[in-house]
Every structure is written in C-alpha cells, then in structure tokens.
Design a binder for these strands. Sequence first.
DNA 1: TAAAAATACTCCATAGGTATTTTAT
DNA 2: ATAAAATACCTATGGAGTATTTTTA
Lengths: 303, 303
Amino acid sequence: MELRHLRYVVAVAESLNFREASRKLHVSQPSLSVQIKQLEDEVGVRLFDRSKRHVEITRGGEVFLTTAREVLSMLERSSSTARQAQQGEVGTIRIGFVPTASVAIVPRLLEEIKTQLPLVEVELKEWPEATQISELQSGALDIGISHREKLSDRLESMLLLRERLILALPKHHQAARKKAVNFDDVRDDLLLIPRKDLYPTLHKMIIGTFVAGGVRPNRTQAIEHLQTAIALTAANAGFAFVPESADKLWPQEVIFRPLDAGVPRFETVALWLRGSADPLIRRILEILRQIYAKPDSLARRES
Amino acid sequence: MELRHLRYVVAVAESLNFREASRKLHVSQPSLSVQIKQLEDEVGVRLFDRSKRHVEITRGGEVFLTTAREVLSMLERSSSTARQAQQGEVGTIRIGFVPTASVAIVPRLLEEIKTQLPLVEVELKEWPEATQISELQSGALDIGISHREKLSDRLESMLLLRERLILALPKHHQAARKKAVNFDDVRDDLLLIPRKDLYPTLHKMIIGTFVAGGVRPNRTQAIEHLQTAIALTAANAGFAFVPESADKLWPQEVIFRPLDAGVPRFETVALWLRGSADPLIRRILEILRQIYAKPDSLARRES
DNA sequence: TAAAAATACTCCATAGGTATTTTAT
DNA sequence: ATAAAATACCTATGGAGTATTTTTA
C-alpha cells in the first residue's frame, strides 16, 4: 500500500466515476483502475461496486475512505507543524527546578512561555540540583533551574537571579527594630536550617556565612522545606536564613532583616547541555534572558 | 511523499542508525539515505541530525515521527476494519420509523443490534411513511419501518407485525364491562383520530372500519399523536382506535376492547431498496427476521 | 583510522501511458 | 449502440543496488 492508493480512493469516492477521477488525478483511466484493483487485492475487500453502469462505494470502501481521508489530511498538516516545531514553536520542553526557584522563577517563566509560545507544552520536574545535572546529561531534561555549583563541563549556564540571603525573624523578636542584625542578636535562638540533601547550596552558604563571621550557631534544627522554616519562625520557634525572594511567602508574622556583617549573595541559574542546538531550548533560554537580563549586566553572564 | 518515507523515518528513529535501520527495512544504506533526504526536502525540515558521529532526531523530526507512527498504525488496522465492515459488522445504519413503531418495534430492534452487532452505530429517524419511501429511494435511508401501503416497485418489504386495531375507552365508560364493543356503544362519544398527514395508514383504517360498519362517527377530533389520544381518553374526553401494542402506554385509566363487528388488522413492515446487497442492511434484516418470524409463517412474507 | 553517512552510477521493477476488449444499459 | 471500466502491452521514471567518497570522533 502506498499513499497513491489512498489519494486514488478519495478521488474515485468523490466522483464515483473512474474516468472523471482519473482526469482530476492527472492519470489515465486504466492506470487508475489498475491501482484501485491492486489496493482492493491488498485490503481484501472490494472498495467500489462497478458491476452496474455507475460506480458506488461499498461498506468496506466507506470505512477505508474515512481513514484514507484522515491520513491524507494528517500528512498535509504534518509538514507545516514539523517546520513550526523546528522553529521551537511547537513541542514539549522538560524543565527541572529546585524548590527555591518555585516562587522566584517558575511562575513568571510559565506565564511568558504561555504567551510567547502558546503551542509549547511544559513538563515541570521539581528535582534537587544533583538530579537535574545527571538528567540533563542523560538527555531526560532540557533545562534545569538550579544554583551555581561546580558544573560539569558538558553543561552551560546563565545567571538568572542574584539575591541577598537575609534573616527571617519572628515579628516580636528583640532585634526586629534594628535595620540590620548581627550574630549576637540571634546567638541564643534556634537556627532553622534546610536539609543539606535537598538544599545543598543554600545549606552550604548558611554554614559558610557563620564560619566567615567567626561564630557558630548554638542550636540548629534541620528542616525539610523553606516554607516550614518560615512557618516555624512565624510561630516564634526560631529564625532562618533565606533568599530574599522568600519574603513573598509569609509577610505577616515574620520580618526580614539583612545581616550587618555583609550580605551573602545567592545565585539562581539556568542550566542546559553545552552546545545544544535544540530550537525549543534556545527559545526558552531567550525568554529567560528577556526576563532576567539586567542593564547592569550582572545578571547576564553566560559561560 | 509516500508511505515508504514514513516507514523509513520510523525505522531510523527507532535505531538512530542508518545502517541498522536499512537492514531492518531490507534495503541498502544508500537507498535509505536518499529517501530520507528526499523527504526532508519535501517537508522542508531536517528530520535527523547526522552532523555528529551518531544520528539524533530533531524537534521537527519528533513531531513528524508522531504523525508517521499514527498514520502507519491507522493503515495497519484499516484493512481488517474494512473487511469487518464488508461483513456488516461495523458501520452506520440509518433506520427510519413511524411513530406507531416506536413502542412495538424500535426498542427491541435496538437491543438486538446492540448485542449482535455491538460495533454498529444506529441513526434513528422518526419520519412519516411518505418521507421514508422517498429517502429510501434517494439512498438517504437504509431501512424503513412503516405500514404497508402501495409500494414503489423499487422497494422490498417484510412483514414484521400484524396486530388488531382495538378501541381505547375511559375506564368508567358504560361499555367497559362488555367483552367486545359495537358501534352503538360509542355513537355519542368523541372519536380522537390521529392526523391524516402523520398517521396516514392508521387514519385510513379507522375511517375504513366505520365505513365498513355502515356508520360514521358523530363527533371527531384530530390529534397529533397517538399518546395524546390515549391521554385524552384517560381524561374521559373521548375514545380512540389504536393498534393493540399501544395498550402498553397507559394501562391505568384506559381500557382496551375489540370491536365485535370484526377486528381490523394493522400491519407494520420493514422496507428497503430492492436488491440491496449492502451487507449491513442484510444483517439488520436478518435480525428483524429472527425477532418477528412466526411459526405460522404469517409474519414472514417477503415480497 | 575507522565507522558512519553521503554521493555517483547503473539497473530493473513498476506506475503510467496507448490501444483494445468487455460489460451493462 | 454507447458509455464506462477492465485488460494487454509497452515505455520510462525513479527506487534500489554496488562502488566509492566524505565526514567526524
């Protein structure tokens, strides 16, 4: 069976007349007859009844015609959608993100994709940094949103966000009236610190900040998620160190203050396979660049 | 574009290796390369990226592959469904019926089609007798369920049901205690008679019965539907002449009695285009024959 | 350099053409 | 008698083969 047969069946069904159909197809009537017969032999069913002076379609012919029409119209569209896909206008993009990006990056990105590339499907994966890196390399992920770490040289990255790490304190904490807080202000409070396996970069920076300040926290408590740390802070159970963008989460019972001893910077980056020519990936990176490119050129640092 | 191209794309996408794919397809590697290139030229998109040592599929190739797979599997199934359709196992049958058949015939027929030919779709048309006959002849209807009338000789028929025409009386009518009723019993009651245009055969038989009895009804009222006639009878507004099968409609307030002066017979028939070889029509007629064939051979009368 | 795809060419299978026969009204 | 499809036979396009070159890791 070849597409020619389908085209011929459709033409014959439309005219119910072999000669007329053959003219429309720009072939001779005998050629058309031969091809239809060939198809009937292959399908095992008489598609047209020519026993009378006029041609009529059989039941089997009718159902075959339906699929033939469907197939032909699918293939007609296929070229243009394939070209669209090649432009990155259509397709499915798999984006991974770390939990800290769920507030600061993901909603805005999804919104932009929706408006700029309405035909593109997004598959979101909330995965830790290490998982993202291995899945990017295996090809199971297209773009990762993560924090800068020593990268495999098979990956490229783009800085999206550079934010301050600030202290989250209970509203009625004594240090709340100060503009900036120092280590002594929280010496005796419980430090709510996100789990190292789930937030490796954040964890490392928090520890690093204390080490750099020459102090170490008296009491710490490992927490599974940043939201929990802030919720517990609101409940006056302790304090936390969080990226600035987290202040959107619970403004009521929690206040946010910078550390006066110098504010650590916390970076969020996009990652992708080095040299990827995938047009859809390039389009999404272009969107990220649009959103996060800053005039001071700080946020635009592509390796 | 030909189906060959689709098969080749699928094979290459499966192995991501031209030589291996060519072996699976039983063609040489150069032939495969040429055909893929040809398709890429036609579609206007590079489907596979062969710039590296290994082959990978492009975004455009991915979406083309999806339709290619879909098309091929549709066509694989198409032959067997076409053969099924040719056996009358699949397809759509258009059945017309007169209102009087809606209780006596249609429900049972639909049930049998559902169990014996589960893949067949039924399109039901509630059409008067004359419409059925013209639509059968134009090919817009497959089978009609109607009442015997002088038929066009382009149609064939099969007797399905031969029932008595009986009187529907209000429960408390004086004649209700009698086993059979005569004309005098209803002389002064209002005869509820279905409209001639909608129920031509029934109308004619009712009038004919009175004429044969040498009487004519004093008061008559044209009614749009049989159900209305019976409902009005229940409300003591008059009486009606109905096919026996109508007694299933309102048993509570209405009683049914034969006419003692001889009971007219009312026939329901199936109609179809003479000599139709359509396998689905034959299957449905076979089902009707199963249901309505009677041992006394009265109901089995095919012209 | 080796493994893979692309190119060059040759060949033949088959789609399609022309002439004619068969079939149904 | 005639209009339509089927059959017979021939032609030539193009798909596929073999031999070879190009490319990339």
